[in-house]
């Protein structure tokens, strides 16, 4: 009689441990998705914060290149003012394009190109570009592992009973990945 009691007690304990494990796992992964999402924001802000200094330096050497300087300023403004992540990413892509033309422009100004401050900011901005990409990648990875747990057995059972829902990927369009069209006529 006593042995049955032990067996039943053991099974209940084991079941309890499994439930606790899955609840914690789901909570951890769900939080990770939210954190990784805000990390993208942090990196985008960091990038925007670097721009004013860069523009100051550029203005010192190439004041009359208003068009490009304005386009960078505007893209930054759009990034700072964007309400949601999709808009921010879009503005960031625009900013990246504007910065590319700015750095291409610097080729015409040897003094600007040699300016240590300018070089410093250029390096910093390219590192930030990597980080934006990495934070987006981490967001994708996090959501992948969370959804995988929600979708597969036995995680699916626990996700349903605790009310954890699969999360939707926020559609983040890649920066103009299409190849430039070349016409042969």
């Amino acid at each position: 009689m006593a042995i049955w009691l032990w067996v039943v007690g053991g099974i209940i304990l084991l079941a309890l441990l499994v439930v606790i494990f899955y609840y914690n796992r789901l909570t951890v992964l769900s939080n990770r998705v939210d954190n990784s999402l805000s990390q993208i924001d942090v990196q985008l802000k960091r990038r925007a914060d670097l721009i004013p200094n860069l523009l100051e330096t550029v203005k010192g050497y190439a004041k009359h290149e208003r068009k490009i300087i304005d386009s960078v300023t505007e893209a930054r403004k759009a990034l700072m003012g964007a309400g949601n992540l999709q808009k921010k990413i879009k503005a960031d892509n625009q900013l990246e394009g504007a910065l590319k033309s700015l750095f291409a422009l610097a080729e015409n100004y040897p003094d600007l190109k040699a300016n240590t401050n300018f070089l410093e900011l250029q390096k910093e901005l390219s590192a930030t570009e990597d980080r934006v990409a990495y934070s987006r990648q981490y967001y994708n990875d996090s959501i992948l592992s969370y959804n995988l747990l929600c979708r597969t057995f036995p995680g699916k059972v626990f996700a349903n009973s605790f009310g954890f829902k699969e999360k939707e990927y926020i559609q983040i369009t890649e920066a103009e990945k299409e190849l430039p069209k070349v016409k042969f006529e």
């Binding site: 990390q39 990597d130 980080r131 990495y134 934070s135 981490y138």
Partner: peptide, 12 residues
């Protein structure tokens, strides 16, 4: 430092 910081973002 910069590379490791980037990787900590990629890995969490």
């Amino acid at each position: 430092y910069s590379l490791v910081e980037g990787l900590t973002i990629a890995s969490g």
